[in-house]
Design a protein around this nucleic acid. Structure first.
Lengths: 144, 144
DNA sequence: TCCTATATTGGACTATGTCCAAGTCAAGAC
DNA sequence: GTCTTGACTTGGACATAGTCCAATATAGGA
């Protein structure tokens, strides 16, 4: 994530302690935290960080294209730092766990011109749902 | 939508005035209202209808599979009565207008086994984004 | 070191959705 | 037609997620 900090500095960002810890929290694979989770994790390192700063910073990162905002269930939005590698999401319908996945076909090709209603279609998001191994095992034990 | 009312009656639903007007509001093509919109439209016919009844009824319709719940932007959920015809959604990134669209490929086929992480994948939702004709025209006029 | 534009803060505020106890009523029984 | 009863509706309190703002603090250049 120091790459990220460097890119942000290059764009004229002031590198505050708050922004640093938020960037650190967002470092890793298959990271999909809510704003509140980011706040809680950031507060472990910087206890006085405010919710407003977390929302501000996440919003800026999204606007800069460094982080993706993912809304799946109508609950809190999740923030995905894997913004430079196109991917889709696979979500467990049991526990809500989310994985990044790569697909082998371009979903835009599946939308015929006659179904575009004159829109200039530019993007497609695919979300897969299923039971993760843990939830499947739990169901097998509980439900037979 | 009288079909819907009949199906609900067959399942033991009590057909109250509230449920009738909600079913009427949800009648039509490309209907994707929020709960508040459903409430406002229902209140035009039945002024004393409460928000709680709207939320209750929409939740029950979703549980019965008669209406789909669509979350796209982290704002209010939308309710899509076109539940018996598989489809995806096309959304205008300008004004948020939503259309139902049918696609020509099964998105599940695009997710290789190696990307399933042991999940029992059962469903895929595809959401397309683009500018609708109206917003494209507005941009052309305003922005050049 | 100083300056200033930018960032942070806490708290009020909005939007969306859930829950509950009390009152109401649809529809079957007679 | 009227009675009965359990399901339905209601208003309002509550919960959660997110936004906004004026006051304060600070990063980084001069």
């Amino acid at each position: 994530m120091s790459d990220l900090l460097q890119r942000l500095r290059d764009r004229g960002w002031r590198l505050t302690a708050q922004r640093r810890v938020i960037a650190e929290v967002l470092d890793g694979e298959h990271v999909h935290f809510t704003a509140d989770e980011v706040h809680a994790l950031a507060a472990e390192r910087l206890p006085e960080i405010s919710r407003a700063s977390v929302y501000n910073t996440l919003g800026e990162l999204v606007a800069l294209g460094e982080v993706l905002e993912v809304t799946t269930d109508g609950r809190a939005k999740r923030y995905d730092p894997n913004a430079h590698h196109p991917h889709q999401h696979l979500i467990c319908s049991g526990c809500g766990t989310m994985r990044d996945v790569r697909i082998t076909a371009d979903p835009l090709a599946a939308l015929p011109a006659g179904e575009r209603f004159g829109f200039a279609v530019s993007e497609a998001h695919v979300t897969y749902y299923g039971r993760c191994p843990d939830c499947a095992a739990a169901t097998a034990v509980a439900g037979g």
